[in-house]
């Protein structure tokens, strides 16, 4: 017996297994980042001597653009598969990967600028929150890059055998990617602007 609803949605829930799975995973991620944001709010409001170091807003804005674009490209990649257009998937998939890579490189520049300005995680709690949250977010980006690289490379073989299932995988990846993007949309104003 094979496991049902790996590809086609189950009529009463309207979801295939992996899609429900990713929604649940994202729910737990919401709790994870929710806890971190609460920590941030609590520490900041609870500390009268809170210092907010000026951050490189232009660079971060650029990074925000990169991530938002990558959210668009990942949808286009998925749309490519829906249209049975593998080349389009490839093109936008690689673009997504590059945008994510660009984000990480810029983040790297930001980090090194902060280090050379003498700002380290142990400097104060603002820097601690900043490095922890952006670091964890960065790990999510790297994780996503590994997955999309796999789906573009060896994982793409599934397109030959089970195209529908492969399309679903990209959809699930896309949901994850949107979430990572969304986290940044919250991180950017709360760490850089407020």
């Amino acid at each position: 017996m094979e496991i049902p609803y790996t590809v086609e949605p189950r009529p009463d829930t309207g979801l295939y297994n992996a899609k429900l799975g990713i929604w649940l995973f994202l729910a737990s991620e919401v709790m994870l980042f929710g806890a971190l944001f609460s920590t941030y709010i609590l520490l900041r409001t609870g500390n009268p001597n809170w210092v907010q170091h000026p951050m490189d807003v232009p660079l971060a804005t650029l990074n925000t653009m990169l991530l938002i674009s990558s959210s668009v490209t990942v949808v286009l990649a998925w749309a490519g598969l829906r249209l049975k257009n593998f080349a389009q998937f490839r093109k936008y998939g690689i673009l997504t990967l590059l945008l994510a890579g660009g984000f990480m490189v810029i983040k790297g520049f930001e980090y090194s600028a902060e280090f050379s300005a003498g700002l380290f995680p142990w400097t104060d709690n603002y820097m601690a929150v900043y490095f922890t949250m952006t670091g964890l977010h960065g790990l999510h980006i790297v994780g996503g890059m590994v997955v999309i690289a796999y789906l573009l490379g060896p994982g793409a073989k599934m397109w030959e055998t089970e195209p529908e299932r492969f399309t679903n995988r990209i959809e699930v990846f896309g949901l994850y990617w949107h979430f990572v993007d969304l986290v940044w949309i919250f991180l950017f104003p709360s760490l850089y602007l407020l």
Partner: peptide
Amino acid sequence: LLAFPPLEAAGILQLMDRVVGTSF
């Protein structure tokens, strides 16, 4: 699913305090 992630966050923060030297 929903209660464990905050502890994971807390664990990460405590690791940062212990290993990196932050003061959450």
